[in-house]
Design a protein around this nucleic acid. Structure first.
Length: 789
DNA sequence: GCACCTCGAGTTCC
DNA sequence: CTCGAGGTGC
C-alpha cells in the first residue's frame, strides 16, 4: 500500500523536528523539550516508517539506534588523504614554525592563525552527498580507512542532514570522535556494575565503542563528535579563512570547539597555548595540545605540503605525562629474526591513561646510553602517547650494589652464541631455526593477519604447539588433527597444574580446536604476495612481497631468480636481492617451502599468474614495454613502439613525441608514456632493464614442466597465413611456441586455429572448407594473454 | 656522496 | 610510534 500524502508529510515534519531537538540537546547543549515529549515524537515516526517502509530515509533519526551487525568493516579510500600534523613541544619549535610560514609566504608581516584545542580522540571523515550523510570512515593510515557509517549514524551530534544551505553536492567533513570525561566516568560505572571490563581512558573507550561491528552497541555508548575541517569538496566553498570555515560548519549543524580563536604571530600562539593549558583540567574532554593553522586558505594552499604533513599547520603538544617506577627486572626477548631485545619489567605504574608494566630498551647501545640497571628508579612516559619509554634513571636513588646490565653472549632461549654485525645496532641469536623462540616467532609471523591470516592461532597456542613438539615447521600446522590439539591441551593443562572445571566434569571442550582447525584449513589459498610475506624472508615485508608477486608471478620464479634479476625490480637493491636469493639457497628453507606446497599439505597461492614475467621470458622489447605497466600501452601498441625505439634509447633520450606520432603511435599513448617516464623511479627502472636485458632474459628460468601444462596455448596447433598488421611471422611463431602451442605449415583437421592476415590465400580457403576457426592478430594476442578457454 | 623517503622490524596496551 | 636500514634521486 502506498503511503498517503499526509503520512509522508507528517514523517518529514517529525524528522525535521526530532533533528532540531537533537541538535539543541547534543550540539548546542540546550534541551528544547522534555525527554518524554521527544520519545513520543520518536515513536510516532517509527510507527509511520514501519507502516509505510517507503517513507524510511537514510537521514531519519530513527536510524540512529543501530542496525544489523557487520562481519567486518569495508575499506574506504579517502578522496583527499587525511594527513597527520607535525608536532612541536617547545616554544622555540613554535617560533621556528612561524618563521617557516613567513619565509614560505615571503612576508615579514605577522601572520594570523586559527587556533583550537587538539582533541584526544579518533580522526573521522564524514561524506555528505546533497546534504545527506552517506558515508563515514576512520582515518586508517591516512589513505585508506575503515567504513563505519552505521556506527557514526548513531552519534546524535552528527547531523544526518546538513542544516541551512550553501553546501556543495559532495562535501567531506573531518573531525574527531571522542568521549567526554563525564560520559566516560558514567560508562565505566555502568561497565563495573555489569561486571564488564572497564576502559582505561576516554580515548580507548571512544575507539572501542566506534569499532563495534554491532552498531547497536555503539548506539548505547555516549560518543561525541567535534568538527575541525573539510576534505573533498572544500575548495567549492566560498569561505576565505579557516575561522570562517569553522563558522560555516557550525551553521550546518556540526559541533565545533568553543575554545577556538584567531591569534596573531607566535606570541599569540604561545599565549593561547598557555591559556588552554590552564583550562585543560576543567575542559569537558581530554586534549593533548593545541593546533595552529594559517588562517587564510589561499595562503594555506600556497604553503602546501611536505610529504605527509601540511606546511601551514602544526600541533603544539603538551609534554607527555611522566611517572616514576622501579625496574624489577630486565628480560631478553628473542624476535623472529633472532634479535635480542632487552625489556624492562616495571612495577605497574599509571601513566598517560594506562597502566604500564613493560618498556623496551631497544638494544645494547640504547641500554648503555641510559644505563638502566635492575632495581633502578626510572622516569617513564608514553612516547607519542602510545609506546612506553624509559626516559632516564633517577641517579640519586640507585642502590650502591646495582650492577650494570650486560647483554648475554648466549641466547637465553637456545643457548647459541650471539653475534652483533659491525655497524648494526641489534644483537642476534645465531641459532636460527633450531632456536625455539625464533621458531615460535616465525610461526606467529606466518599466521599473522597480513600474512596467512590464520584465525584463532595466537601466541598461547603457538607456544604450546612448538613446546610439545606438535609443530616444527609451518607446514606441520596443516597436518594437525583434532586429536593432536586435544592431547596438546591436556598436556599443557597438566603441566600448568590447572584442570578446567569442564574437564573435571568429564567433558572435553572441542569447540576451540575445531575453530582452530577451520582457521588453519581456510588459510590454504593465500595470495602469492601474502605467502611470500609469510615466509619471513629477511628484508621482505608486505610491500617487497607484493613487488615480487607482481613481477615474477609465481613462487617458482621467485625461488629460482638469481640475485642479479631480483636487483633490477623496483625498490629492490643488492642487499634485499641477496637476502632473498640466500633464503632460497638454504636447504632447510627450500624443504620447508616444498613441504608447504606439497599436495599432502596443500598450500598454494590463489593467484599465481605471471603476465609480466611470462611475456618477458619469451619475448623481446615490445613485451618488456608492455610488462612495465605503462598505462594505455597495450601489447599491440608496445610492439609498434618497439619497432621504432628500444628501451635503452627511451631511457636515455626520453619521449620524442614527433617521431613517435610519425611512426603511427597515438597521442594518448605518447602522453601516457611521457607521464610514466616522469614518475619516480620509472626511468631508472627502464634504464636498468635496458642495459641488462639479455642477461636478465638468460637468467630467468625456463618455463617449468608444471607451467607448460598450464601454458596459455598448450597442445594447440596454429597455422599462419597472410601478412599480420604488426607482428612479423617469426615473432608470432615464437610467441605461440613459447605459450606451449605448435605452428604447422598447412591446414588440416588437426589444426585448431588459422591466424589470417592481409592477402591470405589458399590456407584460408582450406580452413573455411574444413570448418577450422579463423582468427586475426588481435584475437591471437588475446589468446596469448588469456589462454584458450 | 649526501639528502630524502619508504619500508621493515620491534614493541605496548586495550 | 619510532628507529634504522635500504633504495633512489640530485
Amino acid at each position: 500500500m502506498a503511503a498517503p500524502a499526509v503520512a509522508a508529510e507528517r514523517a518529514a515534519e517529525l524528522r525535521a523536528e526530532l533533528e532540531r531537538h537533537n541538535r539543541a540537546y547534543y550540539v548546542l547543549d540546550a534541551p528544547s523539550i522534555p525527554d518524554a515529549e521527544y520519545d513520543k515524537l520518536f515513536r510516532e515516526l517509527q510507527r509511520l516508517e514501519s507502516d509505510y517502509p517507503e517513507l524510511l530515509t537514510a537521514d531519519s533519526p530513527t536510524q540512529r539506534v543501530g542496525g544489523a551487525p557487520l562481519k567486518e568493516f569495508p575499506p574506504r579510500r579517502h578522496g583527499v588523504p587525511m594527513l597527520s600534523l607535525n608536532n612541536a613541544f617547545e616554544a622555540a619549535e613554535v617560533e621556528a614554525f612561524d618563521k617557516r610560514v613567513r619565509d614560505g609566504l615571503e612576508t615579514i608581516a605577522a601572520i594570523d592563525y586559527a587556533v583550537e584545542p587538539k582533541f584526544d580522540g579518533l580522526a573521522i571523515s564524514l561524506t555528505y552527498e546533497n546534504g545527506v550523510f552517506t558515508c563515514g570512515a576512520t582515518r586508517g593510515d591516512g589513505v585508506t580507512g575503515e567504513e563505519v557509517t552505521p556506527n557514526l549514524r548513531t552519534l546524535r551530534c552528527i547531523p544526518l542532514r546538513l542544516q541551512g544551505e550553501g553546501w556543495p553536492a559532495l562535501i567531506e567533513i573531518r573531525g574527531e570522535v571522542l568521549m567526554f570525561k563525564a560520559d566516560f566516568a558514567e560508562l565505566n560505572a555502568r561497565q563495573r556494575e555489569r561486571g564488564d571490563k572497564e576502559f582505561a581512558n576516554p580515548r580507548n573507550a571512544a575507539a572501542g565503542s566506534l569499532r563495534q561491528l554491532d552498531s547497536k552497541i555503539t548506539a548505547s555508548r555516549p560518543l561525541s563528535f567535534l568538527a575541525y575541517g573539510v576534505g573533498a569538496g572544500g575548495d567549492a566553498l566560498a569561505v576565505k579563512t579557516h575561522s570562517e570555515l569553522m563558522d560555516q560548519l557550525a551553521a550546518w549543524g556540526f559541533p565545533v570547539a568553543v575554545e577556538r580563536a584567531v591569534v596573531t604571530g607566535s606570541h599569540g600562539q604561545l599565549e593561547f597555548f598557555a591559556k588552554i593549558g590552564m583550562l585543560r583540567p576543567n575542559l569537558p574532554y581530554d586534549i593533548d595540545g593545541v593546533v595552529y593553522k594559517v588562517n587564510r586558505l589561499d595562503w594555506q594552499a600556497r604553503l602546501g605540503f611536505v610529504s605527509r604533513a601540511p606546511r601551514f599547520a602544526i600541533a603544539h603538544k603538551f609534554p607527555a605525562e611522566e611517572a616514576l617506577t622501579v625496574v624489577e627486572a630486565i628480560d631478553i626477548q628473542v624476535g623472529r629474526t633472532g634479535a635480542l631485545t632487552p625489556v624492562a619489567r616495571l612495577a605497574p605504574v599509571f601513566v598517560g591513561g594506562v597502566t604500564v608494566t613493560n618498556a623496551t630498551l631497544h638494544n645494547d647501545d640504547e641500554l648503555r646510553r641510559k644505563d638502566v640497571r635492575v632495581g633502578d628508579t626510572v622516569i617513564v612516559r608514553r612516547a607519542g602517547d602510545v609506546i612506553p619509554e624509559v626516559v632516564a634513571v633517577v641517579a640519586e636513588r640507585r642502590s650502591a650494589t646495582a650492577q650494570p646490565f650486560v647483554m648475554p653472549d648466549a641466547c637465553p632461549v637456545c643457548g647459541a652464541h650471539v653475534v652483533r654485525e659491525p655497524g648494526e645496532a641489534v644483537t642476534r641469536c645465531s641459532g636460527g631455526f633450531s632456536c625455539r623462540a625464533q621458531r615460535i616467532q616465525a610461526i606467529l609471523h606466518f599466521a599473522g593477519r597480513r600474512m596467512m591470516d590464520i584465525e584463532g592461532l595466537g601466541e598461547r597456542y603457538v607456544e604450546r604447539l612448538v613446546e610439545f613438539d606438535y609443530v616444527h615447521g609451518v607446514a606441520d600446522l596443516y597436518r594437525l588433527t583434532l586429536a593432536d590439539l586435544l592431547e596438546m591441551k591436556l598436556r599443557a593443562d597438566e603441566r600448568d597444574g590447572c584442570v578446567p572445571e569442564t574437564v573435571k566434569a568429564g567433558q572435553v571442550p572441542t569447540r576451540w580446536a575445531e575453530n582452530l582447525l577451520d582457521g588453519i584449513a581456510a588459510s590454504r589459498r593465500p595470495s602469492l604476495a601474502r605467502l611470500l610475506f609469510a615466509l619471513g624472508i629477511r628484508h621482505v615485508g608486505e610491500s617487497t612481497a607484493k613487488t615480487l608477486a607482481d613481477w615474477l608471478g609465481s613462487i617458482e620464479r621467485v625461488r629460482r631468480a638469481p640475485a642479479s634479476l631480483l636487483a633490477v625490480l623496483p625498490d629492490i637493491g643488492a642487499t634485499v636481492a641477496l637476502a632473498i636469493a640466500d633464503f632460497f639457497a638454504e636447504e632447510r628453507n627450500v624443504q620447508a617451502v616444498d613441504d608447504l606446497l606439497s599436495p599432502e599439505v596443500g598450500v598454494a597461492p590463489a593467484d599465481e599468474h605471471a603476465p609480466r614475467a611470462e611475456l618477458a621470458e619469451r619475448l623481446g622489447w615490445s613485451e618488456l614495454y608492455a610488462v612495465l605497466g605503462v598505462p594505455r600501452l597495450t601489447p599491440v601498441r608496445a610492439r609498434q613502439l618497439a619497432a621504432v625505439i628500444d628501451g635503452a634509447t627511451l631511457a636515455a633520450q626520453g619521449v620524442n613525441g614527433a617521431a613517435l606520432s610519425g611512426a603511427g603511435i597515438p597521442g594518448e599513448v605518447i602522453t601516457a608514456l611521457a607521464d610514466w617516464l616522469q614518475m619516480r623511479g620509472n626511468r631508472g627502472l627502464l634504464a636498468a632493464v635496458a642495459t641488462r636485458r639479455d642477461e636478465l632474459l638468460a637468467a630467468l628460468p625456463a618455463v617449468t614442466a608444471q607451467d607448460a601444462t598450464v601454458a596459455a596455448l598448450a597442445g594447440k596447433t596454429f597455422v599462419l597465413t597472410g601478412t599480420l598488421p604488426t607482428l612479423k611471422r617469426d615473432d608470432a611463431k615464437a610467441m605461440i611456441e613459447a605459450a606451449g602451442g605448435k605452428v604447422a605449415g598447412s591446414v588440416s583437421k588437426k589444426t585448431d586455429f588459422v591466424v589470417a592476415g592481409e592477402e591470405a590465400g589458399s590456407k584460408l580457403e582450406k580452413a573455411l572448407e574444413l570448418g577450422v576457426a579463423v582468427i586475426d592478430e588481435a584475437e591471437l594476442l588475446k589468446l596469448l594473454e588469456k589462454g584458450v578457454q
